[in-house]
Design a protein around this nucleic acid. Structure first.
Length: 923
RNA sequence: GCCGAGGUGGCGAAAUUGGUAUACGCACUAGUCUUAGGAACUAGCGUCGAAAGACAUGCGAGUUCGAGUCUCGCCCUCGGCACCA
C-alpha cells in the first residue's frame, strides 16, 4: 500500500526517501511554518496580513547597483485632492502589474510614488473653508496614502517626494537659477491667458482651445510681467528626438506633440512700405519694410496684398497717415481679440485697407496693405503675404473684399495655356503641387524646387532668408499664487533684477498668507517674505512674489526618486545614471501634450547641465483610457447641476441604453458618459470597492474589464467574476494544500490528464508572458481563468496515487499563483506561502515567473479543420507537424467529406500545417 | 474643415496577425444540493430552423483556395486640433 504523504517544502527528494524508509514522515510535515489556511477566502484578512509583511520585510525597496538589470516603472503622480478616484486605481493597478511582472522576471525594479502637492485646489480650500493650504494638503496625502496602501500597491515608500516641501522645491529654485544663468529663464511683459473664474494665469497649453484646462470656462487676456522658460530654445530638438520615441510611445501622442510644437519651415521676405500717393519721394533703401513669413514663397507672384495683425508695430508708426475710420476699425479688432474665444463658431474674416502700399521684391509690383482679423501677432512676424489663388484663408478674404485673384501655380499640362489665356476664374484655391506660371523668370519651374531657388534668390538680394517658425511658445511659469514654489529672484533698487544665491535656497514659503483667491499673489501682502536683502549688495531688495507653475514640479520629480535625500543637488548624477531613463511610464493621455513636452524639455536642460547623459527621459509610454461613468445633470438653469446616480431613477431599453432619467423630485435629467469625478456625482469610491470586494478583486477587475487603452465605462456588475475566480482558486488550493506538497521528479512519467494539463500550463505561461511584455492585461487574466478551468476539468483528484498527475497539478497551481501576482498580489502571496511552506513572500523567496517549456506545451495530437471550398465540413486529429501528404489523405477520407466531394473534380488541396486542409472542388 | 482611433452576441470583450469567428467574464435559462440562498456545482446560451443546414464581424464592391484581418468606395461613433500664413 502506498502512503499518501508528501514531503514538506525545503526537504529534498532524497531526504524524503530517507524519511519514508525510516518512517519519520510525520516529523517533517510539522516543519511547515505557515498560518493554517482558512476554508473560505477572506480578502480583508489576507490583504492586511501581506501589506504588513511587505512593509516589515521591505519587499519592494530597491537599491541601485544590483547584479540584476534595472527597470524603472513609473506612473504619473497624483495631485492630493483628498480621495483617490477610479482613474487612479486603473493607472496604479496597471503600473503595479508591470512592476510585479518585471520583478518576477528578474529585474531590479524601482517603483516609486509621490505627490504633486502644489496647486490651486489647496488655495481654493483655504478660501472656502479657511484652512491652511499646507495642513489641507498634508491631511489629503495621509488619506490618499492610506488608500494606496489598502490597494496593496508595491511602492518603495521610502522614496516618496512631496512637491510642497522645501526639501523638494528648493531644487525647483535651483533649476530656475541654473536656467537664469543660461538665459533660459527670462522676464517680459506679456499678454497672458487669464481665467476669470479661477483668477489665474494659464500657459498656452493650459488654455488650449480657448478654455481653461481646469474649470473649462473661457479664457481672456491680460497684460502682466511674467517669467518664462525658453522652451523654444529646444523646439527643434523636441521635434527631432520624437523620432527616437517611435515604437515606445504611442503614435498618436508623438503626433500630437509634433503638431503642438508646430514647426514649419519657410522663408522670411521683406516688403518695402510706402504711403499711398507719396510715390517717388524716397528711394527704396530709405523705405521701411515689413517682414512676412511664408511657407509658399513659390506663390509670391500671386500676392495681392500684405495683411497685418492689428497689433503690428508698423501700424503705430504710420498712425498719422491712417484715416480715423481705419484706426477705429483696428482698435475694434484688437478688442475683439481680447474677448473670450468661442471655439465653436468660425470667426468671420474682416479687415481694412489702411492706405499703405507694399512693394513685392520679386515683381516690383505694388500691392495694398491691409489689417486683417485673421492674422495673429504671436505667430511668425504678425504679417502675411496674401495669395488668394493658393491659400484657403486668403481666398476667402479676397472673395469677401473683391480683391484680385491671380493663379501662379498650375497643373503642369495646363501651364502653357495660362500664358495665352486671361486668368481663369478660380472656384477654389489651387493647393496641389504644380508648376509656376505668371511668374516671369520662374515660369515652368516645379513649385517645390522653386521654393528653394526663390529663397536663395531672396537671400542673395538681401530681401529675405530661409526661416522656421514654431507654434510652441516659451513657457510662462509665473503664477500669482501662494501655494507654489517661490521664484528665487530679487529686485534691488541698485542692482536691478538679481537671482537669489544658491546658499540662500530654499526661498521658503511663509507659513501663512492672506489668501483671497483673486488678484495679485498673496505673497505680495507678506512683508516678512518680500522684504529681503540683495544677495549682491546687501541693500534692501524686494522678492519676486509670484510662484512657479506646478508643472515645474512634475517636470523632474521622477529624477528625485532616484536620490530622494540629496541636500546638495536635485539628485546625484550617479543615482540617475543607474535608474533613469524611465523604462515604462503610465498615465492618462490628457497629459500627452503639456506635461510630456515640459518634462522632455527639462531632461534636455538637465543633459546640458551635465546631470544626465540622455536626450529622452521616458523610453516607453503607455496612455491608459479614462474611467468614465454615467452622469446625470440638469442644465435648465444654464449651469449644470449634477445628481448622483443613487438619486436618479433610470429607464433603459433592452440593450441597456438609457432612454430617460428622473431625479427623486421628478426633474427630467440629461445624461452623458463622462469622466468620473466627485463633483459630477458619477464616481465610485475605491475604498468602498476594497471594503466590499477586496483590493485584489477590484484591481483584477479593472484590468480585466477592458484593454488598457480603451475607455472604461464603469459597471460594477462584472466585478463578481473576479471575486468568484479568486474564491474558486482559493478553494482549489484549500482542497489540495496537502497534496501540493510534492517535489518535482525529473524521472516521473506523465499520463494522459497530466500531459494535457501541462500543455495548457505551458501554453498559458507563454501567452501571459507575451501579453504582459506587450502591456496587455485583460487577456492574461482570461488566460489564468482558463488554466484554473483546465485544472478543474483535468479530473485529477488530490487523493490520487499518480505522482505525475500530482506534479502536473502542482506545476499548474504554482504557475497560476505566480502569474496572479501582478493582478492580485495578496491572494497570490498567501497561496504561494501555502505552496512553499513559509511566509517570506515571493520577494523573500526569490520567486521567478514560471519558465515556459516548449516541449511540454505541445500536444500529441492536434485538431485540424477540414474545409471544402473554404467552408468547414469536418475535423481530423493528427500529430503536430504531420506531413502535408498525410494530412491530405486523412482529410479526403474524413467524415462527411465524401458528401461534398463525391462526383466532383478535386481541383486543388491546400494544406496549412497544424491548421487546416482545404479541398477545392469544381462543379 | 483637418488629423487620429474605432464599429464583432443582450453587455465588457477574444481571435496565434490571411487559416476552425465569438476565448474569458457578466447577464440570462434549466437543473442538482438546500428550510433557504444574492452560495456552490452541472448543462445551455450569435440569428433562423424540428433537423439537415443556411446566414452572421457597420454597409457595398474587390483580391484570394480561404477575409473580422488586405484593397477601394461609403455610413456611423469617439478623441485631438482648429484661421499657425
Amino acid at each position: 500500500m502506498q502512503a499518501k504523504v508528501y514531503p514538506a517544502p525545503g526537504i529534498s527528494l532524497r531526504n524524503w526517501i530517507v524519511a519514508l524508509q525510516s518512517d519519520k514522515i510525520a516529523l517533517f510535515r510539522i516543519v511547515r511554518s505557515v498560518t493554517p489556511m482558512d476554508e473560505k477566502y477572506f480578502a480583508k484578512k489576507i490583504e492586511a496580513k501581506w501589506q504588513k509583511i511587505w512593509a516589515e520585510t521591505g519587499a519592494f525597496e530597491a537599491e541601485a547597483g544590483d547584479d540584476r538589470p534595472k527597470f524603472y516603472q513609473l506612473e504619473m503622480l497624483p495631485y492630493p485632492s483628498g480621495n483617490l478616484h477610479m482613474g487612479h486605481v486603473r493607472n496604479y493597478s496597471v503600473g503595479d502589474a508591470v512592476a510585479w511582472y518585471k520583478r518576477l522576471k528578474g529585474y531590479n525594479v524601482l517603483h516609486p510614488i509621490g505627490w504633486d502637492s502644489f496647486g490651486q485646489p489647496a488655495e481654493d480650500a483655504a478660501v472656502k473653508r479657511g484652512v491652511n493650504p499646507r495642513d489641507w494638503t498634508e491631511e489629503n496625502i495621509n488619506v490618499m496614502r492610506g488608500q494606496l496602501e489598502r490597494l496593496g500597491l508595491s511602492y518603495d515608500w521610502r522614496r516618496q517626494m512631496y512637491a510642497h516641501r522645501s526639501e523638494y522645491y528648493k531644487f525647483d529654485q535651483w533649476f530656475f537659477l541654473k536656467m537664469y544663468e543660461k538665459g533660459l529663464a527670462y522676464k517680459r511683459m506679456t499678454q497672458v491667458n487669464w481665467c476669470e473664474t479661477d483668477q489665474a494665469t494659464l500657459s498656452n497649453e493650459q488654455a488650449s482651445g480657448g478654455l481653461c484646462w481646469r474649470c473649462g470656462n473661457p479664457v481672456t487676456k491680460k497684460d502682466l510681467e511674467q517669467w518664462f522658460l525658453k522652451t523654444t530654445a529646444y523646439a527643434d530638438e523636441l521635434v527631432d528626438s520624437l523620432d527616437d520615441l517611435e515604437g515606445g510611445w504611442e503614435q498618436n501622442v508623438i503626433k500630437r506633440q509634433r503638431d503642438w510644437i508646430g514647426r514649419s519651415r519657410g522663408a522670411y521676405v521683406d516688403f518695402k512700405i510706402r504711403v499711398s500717393g507719396q510715390t517717388g519721394r524716397l528711394s527704396l533703401d530709405q523705405l521701411d519694410s515689413v517682414r512676412v513669413f511664408t511657407t509658399r514663397i513659390d506663390t509670391i507672384y500671386g500676392v495681392n496684398s500684405i495683411v497685418l495683425a492689428a497689433e503690428h508695430p508698423i501700424i503705430d508708426k504710420y498712425r498719422s497717415s491712417l484715416s480715423p475710420s481705419a484706426i477705429a476699425k483696428i482698435e475694434a479688432m484688437k478688442d475683439e481679440k481680447l474677448k473670450p474665444a468661442d471655439h465653436e463658431a468660425e470667426i468671420e474674416k474682416d479687415g481694412i485697407d489702411i492706405g499703405l502700399r507694399a512693394i513685392n521684391p520679386f515683381s516690383s509690383e505694388e500691392v495694398p496693405v491691409w489689417v486683417g482679423n485673421y492674422v495673429m501677432m504671436e505667430y511668425g512676424t504678425g504679417a502675411v503675404m496674401s495669395v488668394p489663388a493658393h491659400d484657403e484663408r486668403d481666398f476667402e478674404f479676397a472673395k469677401k473684399f473683391g480683391l484680385p485673384i491671380r493663379q501662379v501655380i498650375s497643373e503642369p499640362h495646363l501651364a502653357h495655356e495660362h500664358h495665352t489665356m486671361q486668368a481663369l476664374a478660380l472656384e477654389d484655391p489651387y493647393l496641389a503641387p504644380g508648376v509656376l506660371v505668371h511668374s516671369d523668370y520662374w515660369n515652368g519651374r516645379e513649385n517645390e524646387r522653386a521654393k528653394e531657388e526663390m529663397t536663395r534668390h531672396a537671400e542673395a538680394h538681401g530681401f529675405g532668408e530661409a526661416g522656421t517658425t514654431y507654434r510652441l511658445r516659451d513657457w510662462g511659469i509665473s503664477r500669482q499664487r501662494y501655494w507654489g514654489s517661490p521664484i528665487p529672484i530679487l529686485y534691488c533698487e541698485k542692482c536691478g533684477t538679481v537671482p537669489e544665491s544658491y546658499e540662500n535656497l530654499p526661498v521658503k514659503l511663509p507659513v501663512d498668507a492672506p489668501i483671497t483667491g483673486t488678484g495679485e499673489s498673496p505673497l505680495a501682502k507678506v512683508p516678512e517674505f518680500y522684504e529681503a536683502e540683495c544677495p549682491k549688495c546687501d541693500g534692501p531688495a524686494r522678492r519676486e512674489t509670484d510662484t512657479m507653475d506646478t508643472f515645474v514640479d512634475s517636470s523632474w520629480y521622477f529624477f528625485r526618486y532616484t536620490d530622494p535625500g540629496n541636500e546638495v543637488l536635485p539628485f546625484s548624477p550617479d543615482a540617475a545614471a543607474y535608474w533613469t531613463p524611465v523604462d515604462q511610464y503610465i498615465g492618462g493621455d490628457d497629459h500627452a501634450v503639456m506635461h510630456l513636452i515640459y518634462t522632455r524639455f527639462w531632461a534636455k536642460v538637465m543633459r546640458d547641465l551635465g546631470l544626465v547623459k540622455f536626450d529622452e527621459p521616458v523610453k516607453r509610454l503607455l496612455t491608459q483610457g479614462m474611467v468614465v461613468g454615467e452622469t446625470f445633470f440638469d442644465d435648465t438653469s444654464g449651469k449644470r447641476v449634477y445628481y448622483p446616480a443613487s438619486e436618479v431613477t433610470v429607464e433603459r431599453d433592452e440593450k441597456g441604453k438609457i432612454t430617460a432619467a428622473r431625479s427623486r423630485d421628478g426633474v427630467e435629467l440629461k445624461y452623458a458618459i463622462e469622466r468620473m469625478s466627485k463633483s459630477k456625482g458619477n464616481g465610485v469610491d475605491p475604498d468602498e470597492m476594497v471594503e466590499i470586494y477586496g483590493a485584489d478583486a477590484s484591481r483584477m477587475f479593472v484590468l480585466f474589464a477592458a484593454p488598457v487603452d480603451n475607455e472604461l465605462v464603469w459597471n460594477e456588475a462584472g466585478i463578481e467574476g473576479a471575486v468568484r475566480f479568486l474564491q474558486r482558486l482559493w478553494r482549489f488550493v484549500y482542497r489540495w494544500q496537502e497534496a501540493l506538497q510534492i517535489e518535482a521528479d525529473p524521472a516521473v512519467e506523465f499520463g494522459g490528464p497530466a500531459k494535457k494539463l501541462r500543455q495548457k500550463t505551458h501554453q498559458t505561461i507563454q501567452r501571459i508572458d507575451q501579453s504582459l511584455d506587450t502591456l496587455q492585461f485583460n487577456t492574461p487574466v482570461a488566460a489564468l481563468m482558463e488554466l484554473l478551468n483546465a485544472l478543474h476539468e483535468s479530473g485529477i483528484e488530490p487523493e490520487t496515487d499518480d505522482a505525475g498527475d500530482l506534479i502536473a497539478v502542482r506545476e499548474a497551481v504554482t504557475s497560476v499563483v505566480l502569474m496572479l501576482a501582478p493582478f492580485a498580489p495578496h491572494t497570490a502571496e498567501e497561496l504561494y506561502s501555502i505552496i512553499v511552506g513559509n511566509e517570506k513572500g515571493m520577494m523573500g523567496n526569490g520567486a521567478r515567473f514560471p519558465v515556459f517549456d516548449d516541449k511540454a506545451s505541445r500536444a500529441d495530437e492536434i485538431e485540424i479543420a477540414v474545409q471544402v471550398n473554404g467552408k468547414l465540413r469536418s475535423r481530423i486529429f493528427a500529430p503536430p507537424d504531420s506531413d502535408s501528404g498525410v494530412l491530405e489523405r486523412m482529410a479526403l477520407s474524413a467524415d462527411k467529406i465524401s458528401e461534398y466531394t463525391g462526383g466532383k473534380e478535386i481541383a486543388r488541396v491546400i494544406v496549412v500545417p497544424n491548421r487546416l486542409v482545404n479541398i477545392v472542388v469544381k462543379g
